[in-house]
Simulated scan of single mutants.
Amino acid sequence: MTSEATEPVSLKLTVNGDPCALEVEARRSLADVLRRDLGLTGTRVGCETGVCGSCTVLLDDEPVRACTVLAVQADGQRVETVESLAEDDGRLGPLQQAFKDHFALQCGFCTPGFLMLGTALLRREPRPCRDRIRACVSANLCRCTGYSPVVDAIEAVGR
């Protein structure tokens, strides 16, 4: 391996509305940079292969698996994590509150991924039907909720 592989790369992106300038190794994932360098631990890492969806963030408004995106691929882009969904005063945002109200949290490990998928869907389709919601959240694995409470919560916000 050459020394170039570990040379830091300059990275500029906007994370949850705040501009960030970082020096990172080119091989590091976006999830790793968010969690370790920026302290945004709401982005969970479960499988590190893009299968589980717990690491889903929005990259320029599109859901992506942060464990499979290199941080350098996000250079110049906007990243939104689950931390961006709370109100400015710290209260839960509408979708977060709906998850609480509809018992869609369970163990909570997969919740950030569901919240980000739901956010992206509701921005594209403010009133999605249950079938569209089901199709959207099927990209995320969950062992606890059975998905119905997640669908109910997203549907409630869309009303």
Rank of each mutant, 00 (worst) to 15 (best):
R143N: 11
G90P: 06
D18S: 13
C67D: 09
L13R: 03
L121E: 02
R28L: 11
D131P: 14
R28I: 09
S54T: 11
G76W: 04
V9S: 03
S10Q: 14
Y147H: 09
V82P: 03
A135P: 07
F99V: 02
C110W: 01
D75C: 05
F103K: 14
G113H: 03
L59T: 00
N140R: 08
L38V: 10
E62W: 07
Y147P: 05
Q77W: 04
E125C: 13
A21T: 13
G39S: 09
L59Y: 01
E87T: 02
K12Y: 04
L34G: 01
P149L: 05
E155K: 15
L11M: 02
V137I: 13
C52E: 08
R123C: 10
V150R: 04
R132L: 12
D32W: 12
S3C: 07
L59M: 05
E87H: 10
V151S: 04
E7Y: 12
Q97C: 07
R159V: 14
R132A: 15
L30M: 08
D89R: 05
G17M: 06
P94H: 11
V151C: 04
D152M: 10
T6D: 11
I154H: 02
E4T: 15
C142G: 09
P94S: 08
G17A: 03
I133M: 07
R132T: 05
R159M: 10
G50F: 13
V157T: 03
R132C: 08
R91Q: 11
T43M: 03
S138Q: 14
D89Y: 07
A5I: 15
T49Y: 13
L117P: 00
E48P: 11
A71T: 02
D32Q: 10
D89P: 12
L40T: 07
T56G: 01
C67W: 06
G39N: 08
S148H: 12
E80C: 00
V51K: 14
A156F: 11
L117M: 14
E23P: 09
R123G: 10
V79I: 09
D152S: 10
F114T: 10
L105G: 08
H102G: 11
C52M: 10
C129S: 15
Q97N: 09
D18G: 15
G118M: 04
Q77I: 00
C142E: 09
R91A: 13
S84M: 01
L141C: 08
V33K: 01
A120V: 01
T41Q: 11
A71W: 03
R124P: 06
A5F: 15
V137T: 05
V150Y: 00
R130W: 07
G46M: 07
V64R: 09
D61G: 09
D75A: 05
F114E: 03
A98S: 14
A153Y: 08
A153L: 07
A5C: 14
L38P: 02
V9Q: 11
Q77F: 04
E48D: 15
G46N: 08
A156H: 08
T56Y: 00
L11P: 01
L70S: 13
R78V: 00
T43A: 04
L115I: 00
G76A: 03
E83G: 00
E83F: 00
R44A: 02
R132E: 12
